[in-house]
Design a binder for these strands. Structure first.
Lengths: 249, 249
DNA sequence: CGGTGAGTTGAAAGCAATCAAATGGCGTGG
DNA sequence: CCACGCCATTTGATTGCTTTCAACTCACCG
């Protein structure tokens, strides 16, 4: 809770100029790492910061895409939902991940999925048109975007394997490993204890199971001594290798 | 690295000069549509054609990536497999689709999945290094590649919804609609009868079911008068709207 | 101290997987 | 031209994993 003080200040002063890209948490990660000091100034000029609380959405499925964004802190989910209550999370976004349907095309598009904050979320927004202009001006930026998109495609395909062929236990184990890795990338260091960013319902929607099955499998891993729990969210990874085994291929 | 002249590239017998890009089936589709006549000549210079028969593979999961390719005719599958026999098709590639793990990064990578011909397949191959050079020289090419990658990402996420949340009947109906659309894009026109490019086993691996379940659901659709069959592969779409209903959201 | 919502646990039902066998298409060889 | 064998597909019977329905626990908060 202590480390949230900086974010809290960012809320009250939402102008980019007062908190320029130079000192940004993700200045040297993700897209922005592709830009030089001079180039980053152009980005600063069009950037706007925004804060979302858990459950609040940045865009809704079907909306017209108006802006792109970079996540500077927190976790967001990409959700595709059906009228009948079924919904599937098609991606999780962490610190330094980029949000945007189709940059570079120069034409308006409708959002293919909702984007919802699952933790307190800090964003850096870019208006569509202006960002596209920069994209064309700086090839390294477009190249970096291509690489990130390819990474996401790879991840989506990994998830297709999970959803199409893995058992409930394998899915939960894979999910736990996935989150652990992402949390580490987000600067938390190699901790073996941290809070899951998602509740049971979101986990279920991410790995294609029901809440009850997720709960049962987590209990099973706990009873097997693979993980330890403190409350529902705080997880300690006790037997990392055992978890990998249970995650399957 | 010294870049050799285009003339020096005329090594292979089946090289591009004997069948230049200008008259290619996909000259004005996919990646190549982003290039002018002058620019396409550079592509012609590094291109090499190749033919694969059903079951033959272009790359194997884990191999080092050596080349990119364009599909000029036929259908290929992207497969991720496990030792225990389970496997999942993470993508189908049709005419004008691009094959390649991570262009533009300039470094070798291992292939994340095998690429296997499911029909007679005609390819246009590009050596990794040389293609990357062109990518940097022609921004429109890189931009087009970004767009296609974003499209594929969108498709992969659609499939995540299918694999995570749809019933067996919805999966089969969705698959049939998907294939129909792809076949039409491949220049077959708005036919309502054609051969499925995949056998039951591949369909099962694509939509996350077993062969038997796929067969049962197809039979059910036939008995319901939604589709008609002539043998196992030739399908006639009788009730398009009914198929859409059964495909779910 | 009760209310609420998230999570856990139990029992029963359902849907797809598995096991098993029959059918059909197709090329080969008699 | 037909018989045979092989392989893909279909169909049937049973099993079993996950879902569904339901009740209970727990933490948090007014």
């Amino acid at each position: 809770m202590v480390e949230r003080s900086r974010a809290a200040m960012g809320v009250t002063v939402t102008n980019a100029m007062t908190q320029a890209c130079a000192g940004c948490a993700v200045r040297h990660a993700g897209l922005c790492s592709a830009l030089s000091s001079d180039e980053i100034a152009d980005l600063t000029a069009i950037a706007r910061r925004k804060h979302l609380s858990p459950g609040q959405s940045l865009v809704l499925e079907g909306d017209t895409a108006r802006e792109f964004a970079n996540i500077t802190d927190g976790v967001a989910k990409l959700v595709r939902g059906a009228e009948d209550g079924r919904s599937q999370i098609v991606g999780l976004l962490f610190q330094s991940d980029f949000i945007g349907a189709a940059p570079g095309t120069g034409q308006a598009q409708t959002e293919p999925h909702s984007i919802v904050a699952v933790t307190e979320l800090e964003l850096c927004l870019f208006p569509r048109q202006r960002f596209d202009t920069l994209l064309h001006r700086y090839p390294t930026l477009e190249n970096k975007l291509l690489q990130q998109t390819l990474d996401e495609l790879q991840l989506a395909r990994d998830w297709m394997v999970l959803l199409g062929r893995k058992t409930a236990e394998e899915r939960v184990a894979t999910f736990l490993l996935h989150v652990a890795q992402k949390m580490r990338n987000s600067g938390c260091g190699p901790l073996d204890t941290f809070d899951l960013p998602l509740g049971r319902a979101d986990i279920a929607d991410y790995i294609g199971l029901t809440i009850e099955t997720v709960s049962r499998q987590i209990s099973k891993l706990r009873k097997a001594g693979i993980i330890a729990l403190d409350g529902a969210k705080s997880v300690t990874y006790v037997d990392y290798e055992g978890l990998k085994e249970r995650a399957g291929f």
